[in-house]
């Protein structure tokens, strides 16, 4: 079976009137299989949206070839294309007074006739997608009364109601709070693995992408895309390389991003468990370099986990004091 999406030597960008087109990226070779959840990540402005718009046919490519299910993108009639690909775009929608089920039912447009008469089967698909996405209880609510997270799920349900092989989303988590982002990323992963869709999403949530994606397309500001399992990209240094711009450091140990530490004060820390990890983070933020060995003259912090109440003990300049919270500890450390 051919991959759902295949792009070869693809050149994307903008046609600029009669002048030379503005090329965003060139020589892209990309592939997306059914059941695969791919996150497109990269710094702002590298052309992630341009790539997604080109792959979904919203914007003409400049050169190269895109194939959907083994057939050229350009050869699709718009209605057939809608049976292959559906999208969730980044701009927030304002549809006025529409019910959730009415909005999701728009996903059936490629299947209904001129007057959009919905068959029983069409409604079944709509209700099923609302259930899969987890908003079936909201189906009679007006869209404008939903929270951002709920509304985004409804937009995903609408896209699913199109019964596409490929689902493309442009920053679906942009307006959501953290729990909302986790839920959406989980959902997308499930849609790919559990419903055999190919799912492609761009996102700025790198840590979530690392956790949920089957594969990552990492786009840098020269328009090059490194592909691989998230772990591969972490280990071969692609992640660090792409994002190590001024002030941001990718830590391959924790898979998190950190601000570059310019502190030079050193501190010795001992302890264990999660208290140790979080204390280390706090000290890091406060501008300390945490040492494995004690250097004479520098402060010494000892985390003592106890039943019910952890204490932080600080030895510095011949004095020993104990604190009940990290916050109190930080207040007393030498500036």
């Amino acid at each position: 079976m051919p991959p759902v999406l295949q792009a070869s030597r693809l050149k994307i960008g903008y046609k600029n009137g009669g002048k030379t087109p503005k090329v965003v990226a060139d020589q892209l070779n990309l592939q997306l299989r059914a059941g695969e959840f791919v996150c497109l990540v990269g710094p702002n402005g590298v052309g992630k949206s341009t790539l997604l718009r080109t792959l979904t046919g919203l914007q003409p490519k400049l050169a190269g070839e895109i194939q959907l299910s083994g057939r050229k993108l350009d050869a699709y009639h718009s209605r057939d294309l809608a049976n292959q690909v559906s999208v969730v775009l980044t701009s927030p929608i304002s549809v006025g007074a529409l019910r959730v089920d009415e909005l999701a039912a728009m996903g059936r447009f490629p299947f209904t006739g001129l007057f959009d008469r919905m068959s029983e089967h069409d409604w079944e698909v709509v209700h099923e997608t609302l259930r899969v996405v987890g908003v079936d209880k909201l189906s009679q609510r007006y869209v404008h009364t939903l929270s951002d997270g709920e509304r985004q799920k409804v937009m995903i349900a609408r896209a699913l109601a199109q019964e596409p092989r490929l689902l493309v989303l442009d920053e679906p988590t942009a307006y959501l709070d953290l729990p909302g982002r986790v839920v959406v990323m989980n959902l997308l992963h499930d849609l790919a693995s559990g419903h055999d869709k190919a799912v492609l999403t761009s996102t700025h949530d790198l840590e979530l992408a690392l956790r949920h994606a089957d594969r990552i397309w990492l786009m840098d500001d020269e328009g090059l895309i490194s592909q691989g399992a998230p772990e591969d990209l972490v280990l071969n240094g692609s992640f660090a390389q792409t994002f190590n711009r001024a002030g941001v450091l990718f830590d391959p140990l924790s898979g998190t991003f950190d601000t570059q530490n310019s502190g030079s004060k050193s501190v010795f820390l001992e302890g264990q468990g999660s208290e140790l990890i979080w204390t280390k983070r706090a000290l890091h933020r406060a501008g300390f370099v945490v040492n494995e060995e004690w250097i004479p003259g520098s402060p010494r912090v000892c985390v003592r986990p106890q039943e019910g109440a952890t204490t932080w003990q600080l030895e510095h300049a011949g004095q020993t004091s104990a604190f009940a919270s990290i916050y109190d500890l930080l207040q007393s450390l030498p500036k």
């Binding site: 046919g57 209605r79 999208v87 447009f109």
Partner: peptide, 11 residues
């Protein structure tokens, strides 16, 4: 109501 881009992707 969803905009021309959505309309296009809906065939």
């Amino acid at each position: 109501l969803l905009g021309e881009d959505y309309a296009r992707t809906m065939g």
